[in-house]
Computed example of a mutant assay.
Amino acid sequence: MHPAGVLAFCVIAPALVLLVGQADLPPYLVHIVTLACTYAIPAIGLNIMLGYAGLVCLGHAAFVGLGAYALGILAVDRGWSFWAALPIAALVAGAAGAGLGAVTLRLRTHFFMISTLAFGLVFHAVANNWDGLTRGAVGLPGIPRPEGFAFLGFDFAFRRLPDFGAFAVGATAIAFALSALLIRSDFGRMLSALRQDETLAAAKGVNVTAGKILAFAIGAAIAGAGGAVKAAFLRVAAPASFEYLEGINLVLIVIIGGAGRLPGPILGALLFVALPEYLRVAAEWRLVFFGIALVLLMRFAPEGLAGIAAKILRRRAAPA
């Protein structure tokens, strides 16, 4: 990340956390921001796969669900704390991503996309029918919020919505920072090479299969962490929250925000969550308006919201 971007991130991220957690914001606004964060974190993981490695995964919601159920089972059935179960949830989803990548990445084009969609459908069917482990269609209720603590004179008790909203914003900032460090590393440059020309990358000595599997594992692990945050927010892990349409929604979020751009998933999640809520005043037509807005955005801004923002900044920075 550019030094100016690092400085801005170090200032803005803590400020947003304190604003959401300590300022007297309307509960509805905090709810929308928190919900957007639960979409942004998995979308950040998907952006590593789709935006940088060029891998279109339609079953990404399954990794979110694996993280959510792993947290729920450990916290509800085993009595683990949220903080102890969170890394396990990420590891479970990451391992599943590595396994799926090892099996499916030999496929190409639509065959690969269909296989990832099938993985999402299989996960949903298992979660919906394995009553002994997942509680079936009812879901796994009673998932606890994170245990509170005090930091720099501020008390965070995450059972309160503002404090949990601050936690969700902080978790999104951490996922964004990890993604930025990864993309700016040699590994990130390798992913870009794979997306542009696999044959040329292989000729230069890049292990194509290992790179793609690692991208899948990292993206899935981030999604699993996002699933754990979502489960703690909703206090339940239910199959309806991780069906195949949710996976397609995550792809839309990445594309709308700007695939292959670091801020893209966050901007896409904010639009995806906030715009339908803003249009709720026209309940019967809001989905129609939302669909039209998406079509117009894709027609006139194919690089997404992040691409629009980058063009505006370049024009302002250009000498008169």
Rank of each mutant, 00 (worst) to 15 (best):
G79W: 01
Q196P: 01
G5N: 05
L46F: 08
I218P: 04
A274W: 10
A157F: 07
A150D: 15
A98V: 14
R135Q: 04
A193H: 14
N249I: 10
G153A: 09
A215K: 07
V229T: 00
G226V: 06
L19P: 00
G132H: 04
A102F: 13
A318T: 14
P42I: 14
F111A: 12
R135V: 02
F290N: 09
H31P: 00
T34F: 08
V56P: 02
A217L: 05
A283I: 12
E284S: 14
T199W: 09
G79Q: 10
C37D: 06
G97V: 01
M113S: 15
I32A: 06
D24V: 07
R261D: 10
I255M: 14
P3Y: 06
R106E: 00
G136W: 04
W285Q: 06
I88L: 14
F149H: 09
I266F: 08
L194K: 10
R145Q: 09
I12K: 05
L279H: 01
G258Y: 12
V56R: 00
A283L: 11
A193C: 14
A259I: 12
P42A: 12
A150Y: 06
A157I: 08
N128A: 15
G264L: 14
I143E: 06
A282Y: 15
S81D: 09
P26W: 14
F167S: 03
I48F: 04
L313W: 09
F151Y: 14
L161S: 06
L105R: 12
G142T: 06
A53I: 13
S185Y: 11
M113E: 07
G264P: 07
A84T: 12
F9L: 13
L105S: 11
L66W: 03
H31A: 12
F123D: 01
V138C: 03
G65I: 02
L200S: 12
I174D: 02
V251F: 08
V281W: 15
G260M: 00
G226C: 10
L270T: 05
G97A: 05
A90E: 01
D131L: 14
P146M: 04
A125H: 15
S185I: 09
V295K: 09
T172E: 04
A23E: 09
A127L: 03
R286F: 06
A70L: 00
G45C: 02
A306M: 11
L107C: 05
G67Q: 00
A43S: 15
H110F: 13
P263H: 13
A173N: 01
P42R: 13
N47T: 01
V229E: 02
L287A: 12
F164L: 10
V138G: 14
F123W: 04
L152S: 10
A90I: 08
V295P: 07
G205R: 05
H2R: 11
S115A: 15
L121T: 01
L121A: 11
T199G: 11
H31R: 08
Y244E: 05
I308F: 02
E198H: 07
N249H: 11
G139K: 02
I218W: 00
L313D: 10
R184M: 10
L7F: 08
A43R: 08
V56E: 06
G227M: 13
A232R: 02
G54D: 03
V229G: 00
G260P: 01
A201L: 08
A23T: 11
G205Q: 04
E243C: 02
C57I: 13
P141K: 10
A177I: 00
L161M: 13
T104R: 07
